[in-house]
Design a protein around this nucleic acid. Structure first.
Lengths: 155, 155
DNA sequence: TTTCATGTAACTTTATATGTTGCATGAGTT
DNA sequence: AACTCATGCAACATATAAAGTTACATGAAA
């Protein structure tokens, strides 16, 4: 199955950025995430529009987080990237005139709607600050690996 | 966006079948759903393994529902087709050694897990009998169109 | 003015759900 | 027995969207 990994990818990138005092380049982030700099820019472009990150060109340029981590939730990020569809299994829409289809869709939509509400509530409870704290807790536990710089080789 | 429409497609097909006393051919179902008979057979093959439907070859053959509609829930169907992934947005798994990734995944997985439980609970409450009843209620309301046979032209 | 980094459009690749063809198998009909 | 109809199934083709890539323009710092 194929996933739209933008959300977790973005969270990943933001947490890496949060641990840097200087702007981080797309290339650096791309290496850490084993992807392409352009993909990073594409992801970040949307977030910049929402004021979540800033970009700087030229020497010493790169990406910086624009807001306090404690004021941004996973839900904010989700909405900043355009609230993509959450579910992989959806309703057929090919025969909207069919009453059977309408009955099925009605039942399914109710279920999906409730699950979506719950999921977004959960997302709303998780701040980037909390994620960062969790990450640092893991870091001290296993003081061995990771940290952003290592990602070039490891991640 | 692209959906895995198997679940709603199957529900659709089953409800159509439920309204027929004789076996329904793959070709008939395919026309009703504007798809290919082979696609129908592919879908139904899994359900037959679970004992939800029966198939008969040759003259007068086709598909028949094997169980009482009131004993089958949407959740049963979902599980019968192999419990496909529910969410379109998932976790990256490309850097499992990265602690940032682990933190992100942990938080996301919790949220997803809760939403999944809720969704499946909802699915478990909806029987095929209930869906069928809802369909028939719509039928009597708008007595004009639909019914299975019409699907050849309309649906 | 050279270097470095983002900005963006256009294109390519890849994954996968879906659609299609062809033929084998088995059940009923004539 | 021969014929027709339907499923069973493998193999191949198509469509679509995410992800990756290339190329070049723009702007900032050295």
């Amino acid at each position: 199955m194929k996933y739209d990994s933008r959300l977790s990818g973005i969270l990943h990138v933001l947490l890496h950025m949060a641990d840097e005092d200087v702007p981080v380049t797309s290339e650096h982030l791309a290496k850490a995430m084993r992807t392409n700099p352009v993909v990073i820019r594409r992801i970040m472009a949307g977030l910049r529009q929402q004021g979540l990150v800033r970009s700087e060109k030229g020497h010493g340029g790169g990406w910086r987080i624009a807001r306090d981590l404690s004021t941004v939730t996973v839900r904010d990020i989700y909405e900043a990237i355009g609230s993509p569809h959450i579910f992989a299994i959806g309703n057929r829409t090919e025969a909207p005139g069919c009453l059977v289809e309408q009955s099925v869709n009605a039942a399914m939509n109710d279920a999906f709607a409730e699950a979506e509400v719950l999921l977004l509530e959960q997302f709303g409870k998780v701040t980037l600050a909390a994620l960062s704290a969790d990450f640092h807790a893991r870091m001290t536990q296993r003081a061995n690996q990771c940290a952003f710089e290592d990602q070039t080789d490891v991640a």
